[in-house]
Amino acid sequence: MASTSNSTSSKIITLRSSDGEVFEVEESVALESNLIRRMMEDDCANNIIPLPNVTAPIFYLVIEHCKKHAEMKDNKEKKKELRSQGEELLKSDPHTYSNLMEAVNYLDIKSLMDLTAQWLADFLKGKSPRLIRELLKIKNDFTPEEEAEILERNRWAFD
């Protein structure tokens, strides 16, 4: 217990993804995750920490963004750059986005929760429902009548 809380930031933590890949991550990066923080407080730190809900490719993405997020703290340009990356990911691979969102939620990383949510919010802004459905592969399960009714109800907002 004492060894975990008093160690320097250069300490390496070992984690294992659901598909068995082993990752070595700096403690300062790993502690961004409240889940890992809690596990370490419960003294699981000397062993490999298993992450049964995260696959290796997604975990790569999470670590990458954690690092970027730590770097950008005082850098406005980097912040902008990071915010604009969501558009690309959502357009090219909404499935990976959803997995990323799920993993970030599971790992409980507050900063990335907000970043990924902001990505989708920026992505939705100014696009027509039809385009959003097409890009995110959302199936329209309304009948034309139902859709017309909703449009009519919300006319004030859509004018």
Binding site: I132, R133, N140, D141, I150
Partner: peptide, 11 residues
């Protein structure tokens, strides 16, 4: 506005 817009994507 965008929030309401998401309301017509699907059920």
């Amino acid at each position: 506005k965008t929030l309401l817009l998401t309301g017509i994507l699907s059920k």
